[in-house]
């Protein structure tokens, strides 16, 4: 309890130092210089002459965040949607691609784990396909699927599939022999054995794979949305770069971090729920 309190205090202290340093670095300076009028229009007169940093101060960001939190779900046309709406698009794509990947990876992983023959037959494909950056599939997806939304989901599908597939296969292959022997002496049917013995025995390993997958999917969706555009938190960040609103970019980054943390927390809970002590 005491060490927890201490750790919390230390975290707050670190945050304080960080914000303090940031605040000092973005304080207005006295220097005056002639500024290009075009540039001044873009970044603001004070920033253009160098008296104020173009980088927002912590207070600017705080104000921006407050605006986002107050009204996260507004929709004023394609280039001006609330951060909540953008996040919802991203989360939806991730969950859709991830679920489809789970539907494929877990049964196929089961098959690979149960049959050394299937494992050896599929292994070369997995080894070649696994290291391909999921974004490399994007042009191919856009060409064949002819829809940017579906393509983004497809990219998430591709990047989520490998950790789940490999972990499921490994978990299934390393189910303790004695549990399988118990099932054999009890003449348990193959389907019942799969669901009552192998699945619960391999569940912790499968959940680890799902947790890694969802983490990767959340990393990839930002890049994918920057490419396909339109909606999503990745598009939001890129769009705010075009708007040169650094405070909004920072808000987006913070939101990405928080949602990623929430996803990981959710899956760590699931993982804990299926883990058993031996």
């Amino acid at each position: 309890m005491r060490s927890r309190l201490l750790a919390g205090t230390l975290s707050l202290l670190l945050l304080g130092i960080l914000v303090g340093a940031w605040h000092l670095a973005t304080l207005p300076k006295g220097a005056v210089a002639a500024a290009d009028s075009e540039y001044a229009k873009l970044v603001g007169a004070q920033a253009a002459v160098g008296s104020k940093s173009a980088f927002p101060s912590p207070a600017d960001l705080g104000q921006k965040l407050l605006e986002h939190v107050r009204d996260p779900f507004y929709d004023r046309g394609p280039n001006d949607k609330g951060i909540g709406v953008q996040l919802a698009y991203s989360i939806l794509r991730v969950l859709l691609g991830f679920s489809l990947a789970a539907l494929v990876a877990i049964p196929v992983g089961f098959l690979i784990g149960m049959s050394p023959l299937v494992y050896r037959a599929l292994d070369p494909f997995i080894q070649v396909l696994k290291p391909i950056s999921p974004l490399a599939w994007m042009p191919l997806a856009l060409f064949t699927l002819k829809d940017s939304n579906v393509s983004a989901v497809f990219v998430i599908f591709v990047c989520s599939i490998w950790p789940m597939l490999i972990n499921t296969a490994f978990g299934v292959a390393s189910v303790r022999r004695e549990w399988l022997n118990v099932a054999r002496t009890l003449e348990v049917s193959p389907v019942r054995k799969a669901f009552m013995v192998i699945l619960p025995a391999a569940a912790p390993t499968i959940m680890t794979g799902m947790r890694i997958s969802v983490g990767i999917a959340w990393l990839v969706i930002v890049a994918a949305e920057m490419l396909v555009g339109g909606t999503g938190i990745g598009y939001f960040v890129w769009n705010e770069w075009n708007n040169l609103s650094i405070a909004n970019i920072l808000s987006g980054i913070l939101a990405i971090g928080l949602v990623g943390m929430a996803l990981d927390f959710f899956f760590s809970r699931l993982q804990k729920a299926v883990t058993y002590a031996e």
Binding site: R176, E178, W179, V182, Y276, E278
Partner: peptide, 19 residues
């Protein structure tokens, strides 16, 4: 082959730890 006619008590108890 294995059969329900023969019950086995295994050396390492072989209980399913999640049940």
């Amino acid at each position: 082959g294995p059969s329900l006619d023969r019950g086995v008590v295994f050396q390492g108890h072989a209980l399913m730890p999640w049940l």
